[in-house]
């Protein structure tokens, strides 16, 4: 047990080392683009107000009526913040696929070495899985840091007359994207994390199916994805199947959903274990 945990730690650290360049790029990109947004969006707003006041000889009050107050939420709800988040999500999704295929299609066939390590092959699987999650949480954390840095910047650029007084936490709460990304409501966040973990397990399983059965594997993989999706979405069809929209309470549907997701996750782990131990081909 201690030996396999040690191997997991070593492999996770090794995988993280390989991810680090990509991760640091995404972190840097997030910080730089966000910073540009924290400066550009409030400045544009102030410029618009100043221009309006000069051109129309208007008072601050009239400018306020036309443009409204500027809040940190306005800065958050811009390309400068949403963009890097989208890039981060897409990047990690891409990396989740890349993390396996690079072992086969890289310049050297590292899959040979990895699969011949005298450690349980599932250790490889878990190390890759953990690293993706470390990547996701690092990006979430850097986004948090960025918001804490950005709030005083925006507040400094927007003069008090035109500021809405919305606090940092209120602005974060108001943005639907952060409800998914940040642990604002712990239970809800846990549901999102569970769903994400199951999605990743299914994706890894599909990759292993393809790596085990090649072209035929693509079709089996699509089938596995469809089956997983059907199982997870099944509760949504229950009202129609049972001809009653109120047969289950929302809390029960969520629990059923969590159970089904767990079942899909565990099945994926077993399928993956079987494939990586018996079917995978270098």
């Amino acid at each position: 047990m201690k030996k396999s945990l040690n191997a997991l730690l070593k492999l996770t650290s090794f995988e993280l080392d390989r991810l680090s360049k990509f991760l640091f790029t995404l972190m840097g990109l997030t910080l730089v683009i966000n910073l540009a947004g924290y400066i550009y969006t409030p400045m544009r707003h102030m410029n618009k107000i100043n221009q309006f006041m000069t051109e129309n000889s208007a008072t601050a009050e009239e400018a306020l009526q036309t443009f409204g107050r500027f809040s940190f939420y306005n800065a958050l709800n811009s390309f400068w913040i949403v963009g890097p988040i989208v890039i981060g999500i897409t990047g990690m999704l891409f990396y989740s696929v890349f993390i396996w295929y690079r072992e086969w299609f890289g310049k050297n066939t590292f899959a040979y070495r990895l699969l011949m390590l005298p450690v349980s092959r599932m250790t490889l699987f878990f190390s890759k899985f953990i690293v993706i999650f470390i990547g996701i949480f690092t990006l979430i954390s850097i986004q948090m840091v960025s918001l804490f840095v950005g709030y005083p910047i925006v507040s400094a650029i927007i003069s008090d007359t035109y500021a809405s007084g919305l606090s940092l936490m209120e602005a974060i709460h108001a943005h639907p994207l952060f409800l998914f990304l940040f642990p604002l409501q712990p239970s809800y966040f846990m549901v999102i994390i569970t769903a994400g973990a199951v999605m990743l397990l299914v994706l890894f399983t599909i990759i292993l199916i393809e790596r085990s059965f090649s072209v035929r594997g693509i079709f089996i993989g699509i089938g596995y994805a469809a089956l997983s999706l059907a199982i997870v979405l099944f509760p949504l069809f229950l009202p129609n199947l049972l001809k009653n929209n109120y047969l289950f309470y929302s809390s029960e549907l969520l629990i059923i959903e969590l159970i089904l997701m767990t079942v899909v996750g565990i099945c994926s782990l077993f399928v993956s274990r079987y494939l990586i131990n018996n079917k995978i081909t270098v």
């Binding site: 730690l9 650290s13 080392d17 690092t138």
Partner: peptide, 11 residues
């Protein structure tokens, strides 16, 4: 060799 892992997790 665990510096990167431990610092990121600490972060």
């Amino acid at each position: 060799k665990y510096i990167k892992l431990s610092s990121i997790i600490l972060f």
